[in-house]
Amino acid sequence: MPDRLSFFIPRESRVHSLNPLTKLALAFSLIILAFFGPGLFLPVALYFFVLVPLSLLGKVGKEFLQTSFRLLLPLFAFLFVMQSLFYPGGETVIFSFWIFSATSEGVVFAFRTATRILVMVSSFLLLLLTTHPSTLMNDLSRRGVPASLSYIITSTLQIIPQMQARAVTIQDAQRSRGLDTGGNLINRIRSLLPLVGPLVFSSLVDVEERAIAIEARAFTLPVKKTSLIDIPDSRGEAVLRWVMAALSLMTIGYRIWLSLN
């Protein structure tokens, strides 16, 4: 289980102090560009000329590269092996052994898929490394996203670590009274219930109390709520967001125009 709950690393940087919505818009427009933009090498270019420099500017370059390698390397290894061997319609054989043969169409396809996934995952990673999830939700609810939605997300982020801690306690308690969590499959299935049961029921007990607590604080009243935290936003960033939205729309338009011709 991860030591810290979110990817967020608190540091002072130009990227950290950007408005969360700007970073979210950047992530989405990069993904749209990577998936619908022209050229085989565009996603790689986006990664090396946009995402990596931004992660360095945000002083999270090391964590950015480490985490994206950890998350994506197994997938990419798998993808390249499987697609180069089994890509349907591959004809140009590069090499073959026994009953397998690797085709260059498969390798190109794997490259295209892998670089797109690279941009998708790492642009979200950049957002998450430099933005705390609750800051993002605060900013979104200020802009009109329902308050109940941001309540759900922020309180989930608080409940999960509590529940993980409780799960560890239950595991230790059950092991100390002799529960075997290793061994063969049937053994492991049997050990699931004594671990999951107490965890689920004890956390469901809290639900009713919490409902009464937030009702007593007028959470469900349909009035405009004020925010305690002020999140900075500038005119320049708003312009930047419109430029990114326009660029994304142009890319999608270009792709539709291509498929019509």
Binding site: M1, T156, I160, A167, D206, I214
Partner: peptide
């Protein structure tokens, strides 16, 4: 509203135990 966060936490934590 209060149940949904607990349910999400159940998803995540049981997913990890499994």
């Amino acid at each position: 509203l209060v149940m949904i966060p607990v349910a999400i936490a159940i998803n995540v934590v049981i997913g990890q135990i499994v």
